[in-house]
Design a protein around this nucleic acid. Structure first.
Lengths: 164, 164
DNA sequence: TCTGGAAGTAAAGCATGCTTGTCTAAATGA
DNA sequence: TCATTTAGACAAGCATGCTTTACTTCCAGA
């Protein structure tokens, strides 16, 4: 009793009160789990995995090169190639020859891929509407506003991610 | 042109505007990356990995049983045992005999473990202060308020997680 | 006092998501 | 033209974080 360690443990108990950062991390984890659960329970045959989700924002609708996707996603082109293989087998994307460079290929969403993305977005929208119903639209709008402000700051903290 | 697919791709481009849910996920990912980066660059020998972070909230200061931790974290006791092994080797936690059950052991933070947690929390606090400096305290407080409201709703969506 | 179940450990295995290294074909530029 | 670089594919390997199976020790109820 009264030892250094005991006092530390007491301070630790106090510190348990969540900061905004901790709240953010926890909410996002729960939201992500719920969204994945709903997407994969969506009756469709396809499975959505985090590796897929990570690439989607970096595949442009006109088609993107593997190397470009890799650079933006911050992983090697080999890693992207593997995930693209999977998504291609599920019929979500297709590889097209790049008219500007015969070494290159363009990865592009298929119609089915676009549908899958809409479905995923609709799941997020659905959850969002449920949240609004529970906590009120004001809170959700404030959340959006704050996150929109914070996002560029967080992006600015990213390491420039030299070569890979 | 004008095909079903083309129209879908156009809609897809519109849909790219981020919802609150998407913003939340992206911000959290960036925040998490930045926090991990800073913690592991903290000069200390120890490495922080997601698996450790996942257990920490479930280790009570008085000590918790492996089985309890596993139940709350939603993984098997074997998985928890492995991570606890690692944290024990780093001197962050210790295993004590449970006075109430000679089969059981209590996992508890050591002084060093408590320090490490303080350090981790201080990193989060530091990032939070930087965010306040950039976007203003109002936004960050609104963020906290909204997340605090949303958290219990998200927790309520959790599957009851039958047996494991 | 046994008998079933729970706590923890041990070992093996597996899914995921990466990496590095190597190769071919094509572009690029001196 | 020829050397270098680049895009992508292929193969192997590895780190992480789990799981399943099997065991020992101990508790607890019939």
């Amino acid at each position: 009793m009264g030892s250094v360690k005991t006092r530390q443990l007491e301070r630790l108990a106090e510190a348990k009160q969540a900061s905004a950062a901790q709240l953010l991390l926890k909410c996002a984890r729960l939201l992500n789990e719920e969204a994945m659960r709903r997407v994969n329970a969506g009756g469709r045959g396809l499975v959505m995995r985090p590796a897929h989700a990570a690439l989607i924002p970096h595949i442009e609708f006109e088609g993107s090169r593997i190397t470009d996707i890799a650079g933006r996603a911050g992983v090697t082109k080999q890693a992207v190639g593997q995930v693209v293989d999977e998504m291609e087998q599920e019929g979500l994307v297709e590889r097209l020859p790049d008219p500007h460079d015969r070494r290159a290929k363009l990865v592009r969403f298929t119609g089915r891929g676009a549908e899958a993305i809409f479905y995923g977005l609709s799941v997020l929208g659905e959850i969002e509407r449920e949240l609004e119903r529970e906590v009120g639209r004001t809170h959700v709008r404030a959340l959006s506003a704050a996150l929109s402000a914070i996002l560029p700051v967080l992006e600015g903290m990213q390491p420039s991610d030299e070569q890979r």
